Amino acid sequence: MEGMLLRIFTEPQEGASYDTLLRVAKATEEYGFDAFFRSDHYVKIMGDSGLPGPSDAWITLAGLARETRRIRLGTLVTAGTFRLPGPLAISVANVDQMSGGRVELGLGTGWYEEEHTAYGIPFPSLAERFDRLEEQLRIVTGLWETPTGKTFSFEGRHYRLVDSPALPKPAQQPRPPVIIGGAGAKRTPQLAAHYADEYNVPFHQLEETGSAFERVRAACEQGGRSCQSMIFSAAQVVCCGRDEAELARRAGAIGRDVDDLRQHALAGTPAELVDTIGRFREIGAERMYLQVLDLDDLDHLELIANEVLPQV
């Protein structure tokens, strides 16, 4: 097995300050992982208090862009409901410049209604959110790809742009990579085939992940796109221990059962993780996002870096 990139994926809405995220991002870079990603949520989903409260994904990544040097930075995934597509394109291009061209944009419909009602964010029907997402993808990529000195206009059902200067341009040309995730059966594969550089399946078991990959491959072929141009990836909760006692301690720290984690996540000894990652590689995954839920346990990252990363 060759070529699997391991990326660290965090859920700051469960309770993490910027300083905590900075420590994790610096450890991510020091230990040799490929990227640091974060979710984009405004209220806790799993945790107890959520203190100290949410942090904005792109403001956080802007800070990390200046305090890291090598790792890729991005979102799994920014909710399309949170931001207008024009200002989003500006923000991400800014952070891409600040990082020297290390940013990736994961963009989705938004799904967690409670965070919308908590902060006064409109939450339309799922069908409308998908319609808006398609227009957002067209606008964001269109703004970035418009040649300097030219303007960009767009007339859609939900958004209208007239003679936009389409500035600033991101550092990466023609644009930063776009990630689309989820295991939807119809619209997700179509959007991924048309707009995504990477397709990600989060928190599904091997067989379901493989089926989702196949749907996107079929959508690519149907749209006349080579499947080789799409990067396939998976995201899994990670919990690793040198022995059963250490594994049980780490599972307990995130409120999970060891047996359940072994069945539904990326969990076990380093050798078990290497084996499971290998099976994801066999179905075509090229990147694994390791969802780290205990952000204070940097020894966990070091263990994975020392005993798993070199073998995948």
Rank of each mutant, 00 (worst) to 15 (best):
S49I: 08
S17W: 08
G15M: 01
Y42T: 01
E30K: 15
F36L: 06
H41A: 01
Y31I: 10
G15V: 07
R38W: 11
T28A: 02
D34P: 03
E30Q: 14
E29P: 06
T28V: 08
D56F: 11
S55C: 13
D34M: 13
R23K: 14
E14K: 00
E14I: 02
G50Y: 03
V43K: 05
M46K: 13
H41W: 06
F37T: 09
H41S: 00
S49W: 05
F33T: 09
A35N: 04
P12F: 02
G53W: 04
R38A: 14
I45A: 08
L21N: 02
D56Q: 12
F36G: 04
P12A: 03
P12W: 02
L22D: 07
Y31G: 02
D56Y: 14
R23F: 07
P12L: 03
A16I: 08
L51W: 15
V24M: 01
G50A: 02
D48L: 13
Y31P: 00
I45T: 12
S39H: 10
R38N: 10
P12Q: 04
K44A: 04
E14L: 00
A16R: 04
F37P: 01
F37I: 01
D40N: 00
L21T: 03
I45Y: 01
S17I: 05
Y18K: 05
F33V: 03
G47H: 13
F33E: 00
E30Y: 08
F36A: 01
A16N: 09
G32C: 11
A27E: 09
S49V: 05
R23M: 09
K44N: 08
A27S: 10
M46H: 14
G47R: 13
L22M: 12
A16Q: 09
A25N: 01
S55V: 15
D48Y: 12
R38S: 14
S49M: 01
S55Q: 13
V24D: 06
G32W: 10
G50R: 07
A25V: 11
L21P: 03
D56A: 10
A16M: 05
Q13R: 08
I45L: 07
F37G: 05
S49C: 04
G50F: 06
A35H: 03
Q13C: 06
G47K: 14
G50S: 04
G15N: 04
F33C: 03
